[in-house]
Amino acid sequence: MYSIFYPPLSSAFIAAMSAANCVMFAQAGLSEARGNNMGYSKFSPSSDDGKQLRLRSRDGMLLIYTPALAAAAAAFGIPGVVVTERCRLLCLALLLHFFKRDFEVLFIHQYSGQIPVESAITISLSYFMSTSIMIYSQYLTQFMQQEPTLDLKYAGVVVFLVGICGNLYHHYLLSKLREKGAPEEESKAYKIPKGGLFGLVICPHYLFEVIGFMGISLISQTLFAFSVMVGTVFYLMGRSYATRKWYLSKFPNFPKQVKALIPYVF
């Protein structure tokens, strides 16, 4: 096992958060699959009892991603944190990941509706905590005398770049499906996605997000980064399942052979 990962860190907090990551994300993914969706997607209810405080979608998405971006950027300004090459690559990957997300929010995504503040804050805290703890875990590894036998950080960089480029490309394709100023009736505002890997899975952007986090896990080679990757897989499996179910309900001609997340499998 230690040929791939650093030995477990002597931190009860990080050990607890590693386990909690998998459990919480698995529960969130199961909740998504059952229809209890977070309030920032096309298949979430567009109305409520009027008591929920909401943000414009663009503002809500910036609230979700920017604190994690700030945490990754701050690591470069804290003396003694970004010392090893591995830690530098990890922080750079996280910085690029969340910078890309904010870039997409500002310049690529098309929006309709609003995001509940509670949902935005919950997701924002999750990203911020995961990013901060990942960096902290990597910082602690510099005091270890034992390193993984297999050095996978450069392979991780390649995998991460494939993931982030594939995710960006498919987000761009999705943005072209929405007409600016389109009505909020979803069956009118959305079309069945085409191009890229959309002929194989309805959520190739999620598939490439998983690949991106796999790359981050390989760069880090800590158990906490691995738990973030596994948690992401659990959550996006549930979310992609819900997305496919939504398309099936809205479009009678939706191609049944198109899977949710993994080509030919799921």
Rank of each mutant, 00 (worst) to 15 (best):
P7L: 02
L9T: 03
A19F: 10
A19K: 01
A20F: 13
C22N: 06
C22F: 12
V23H: 00
L30W: 12
A33H: 07
R34V: 07
N37L: 11
S41K: 09
P45D: 13
D48W: 07
G80N: 05
V81H: 00
E85I: 10
E85G: 14
C91F: 06
L96I: 14
F99H: 10
D102C: 15
V105L: 04
V105I: 02
I108N: 11
Q114I: 00
I115N: 03
P116W: 02
I123V: 14
Y127W: 05
M129A: 12
S130A: 10
S137M: 02
V157T: 12
L161Q: 09
L161Y: 10
G163W: 04
G166P: 08
L168N: 09
H171E: 09
L174I: 10
L177C: 13
S187E: 15
S187H: 15
A189F: 05
A189K: 05
K191H: 13
I192M: 11
P193T: 08
K194H: 11
I202T: 05
C203R: 00
Y206T: 07
V210I: 15
G212P: 07
S217F: 10
S217H: 04
I219V: 14
S220W: 01
F226A: 15
S227E: 11
S227Q: 06
V228C: 06
V228T: 06
L236D: 07
R244S: 04
N253W: 09
K259I: 00
A260L: 01
L261D: 04
V265I: 13
